[in-house]
Every structure is written in structure tokens, then in C-alpha cells.
């Protein structure tokens, strides 16, 4: 465990807590893409298949349970909570995310570490995580203004992946064995997707203006 990875995990945890806070405090999920949350739930379920078979550490197991549990809670809230579900932007959240699932699965069938059930689903979850934010970014573009909690949510998600890239660079120099090209390349693609959001987020922060994404 190095500081970059720990910081990355904490940013990831904060991003999910910010989202839960927004939904719980405002009883509203406007501006949040349910499709992105569904993709993240699928990412965690397919990535943590080894949750009950390989014990790495208490930290590792607890974080996996928290990520799966909190994302499932957000998906449940946005679909079934009587008050929250009314504020879901159903007509704006129209990204066809099933294509992302299909494309990532096909890619995982060709690009993986080992041709085993667990490795293919792990590679699938890595690819899917890289593109899972797309429905959310499209929704933000369509809804124009970004309320600050949702903006912070995307910001922390981007920071989490950016720190993981620092973690891979660190491990590349510190460890002999480096066999995580799948995560590395996918993580770079994912962070690049955030770049434009970061640019507008930074501009709005610098001008102390409301964050507006160009339509």
C-alpha cells in the first residue's frame, strides 16, 4: 500500500459518500445519472468476485463491501425510494449504456491476463469503469448547470483515478514485477474522459462562477 493508492481509495470513498449525502440530505437525485450508477454497481460486482475466496486484508475486504453496498444503496434509492425517484431526470438520462456493457465484455474476451472466468470478468470491470462516467457526463452536458455536490462527485471520482495512475507509476519504479497494463491503459482512458470536465470545473472555480458545461 502506498500513499497514492490510499489517497485514491479515499477520494473514491469520498465521491460515493458525497453522492449518498446529496441524495439523503436533499431527498433528490436530479442531475445524477442512474445509468452511471448501474454501471458502477456492475463494475464492483464483477471486479470483487474474489471477495469471499481471496482474503487480502481487512482494509481490502471492508472497502469492497462498502463500495458494493453504497453503490447498491444509491441505485436502490434512485429507483425505488418514493420521494427520491420522482426527481430522477429520466428523459435526460438516455445514454444507451448497454452498448458500453457489450463492448467492454467483448473487449475483455480478447484482452485479459488469463482466460479464466475471474480474469475475464476482472478485465471487463476495468474497461467498464473507464467508460462508466459517460452517461453522467452526457447528463451534465444536457442539464447545463451542475449543482456543486454533483460537481464534487465527478471531481473526486476523477481525483481517485488520477491518484491510481500515480500509484502505478510509483509501483513501476519500486517493484520488479509490473503486470498491470490493462488497469494502466484503461485508467489513463478513464482520466482523459474527465479532463474536459476538470477544465470547466477549474474555470468555474477560478471565476467563482456556477459550473456551466457547453451544450
Amino acid at each position: 500500500m502506498n500513499i497514492f493508492r490510499f489517497a485514491g481509495d479515499m477520494f473514491h470513498l469520498i465521491s460515493i459518500l458525497v453522492l449518498l449525502l446529496k441524495i439523503y440530505a436533499t431527498k433528490s437525485c436530479s442531475g445524477i445519472s442512474l445509468k452511471t450508477q448501474e454501471l458502477y454497481a456492475l463494475v464492483f460486482v464483477t471486479r470483487y468476485l474474489d471477495l469471499f475466496t481471496d482474503f487480502i486484508s481487512v482494509y481490502n475486504t471492508v472497502m469492497k463491501l462498502v463500495f458494493i453496498g453504497s453503490t447498491a444503496a444509491i441505485v436502490w434509492c434512485m429507483q425505488w425510494h418514493p420521494v427520491v425517484k420522482r426527481s430522477y431526470d429520466r428523459e435526460l438520462d438516455t445514454f444507451r449504456h448497454y452498448f458500453l456493457v457489450g463492448a467492454c465484455f467483448v473487449l475483455a474476451l480478447f484482452l485479459h491476463e488469463n482466460f479464466t472466468f475471474q480474469e475475464i470478468f476482472w478485465a471487463f470491470s476495468i474497461y467498464l469503469e473507464a467508460v462508466a462516467i459517460l452517461p453522467q457526463l452526457v447528463l451534465l452536458q444536457r442539464s447545463g448547470n451542475v449543482d456543486n455536490l454533483t460537481g464534487q462527485y465527478v471531481f473526486f471520482l476523477g481525483a481517485y483515478r488520477a491518484f491510481y495512475i500515480l500509484n502505478w507509476i510509483y509501483r513501476y519504479f519500486m517493484e520488479q514485477r509490473f503486470s498491470r497494463w490493462i488497469s494502466c491503459i484503461s485508467g489513463l482512458v478513464q482520466t482523459a474522459l474527465y479532463a474536459d470536465f476538470f477544465y470547466y470545473y477549474f474555470l468555474s472555480w477560478k471565476n467563482n462562477a456556477k459550473l456551466h458545461l457547453p451544450a
Binding site: N60, E113, N114, I182
Partner: peptide, 10 residues
């Protein structure tokens, strides 16, 4: 390497 992806990362 033969044991697949790094298991210790989230």
C-alpha cells in the same frame, strides 16, 4: 505473470 491481475488493488 501467471497469477493474473494484481489482487491487492481495489
Amino acid at each position: 505473470d501467471n497469477d493474473g491481475h494484481e489482487k491487492d488493488e481495489l
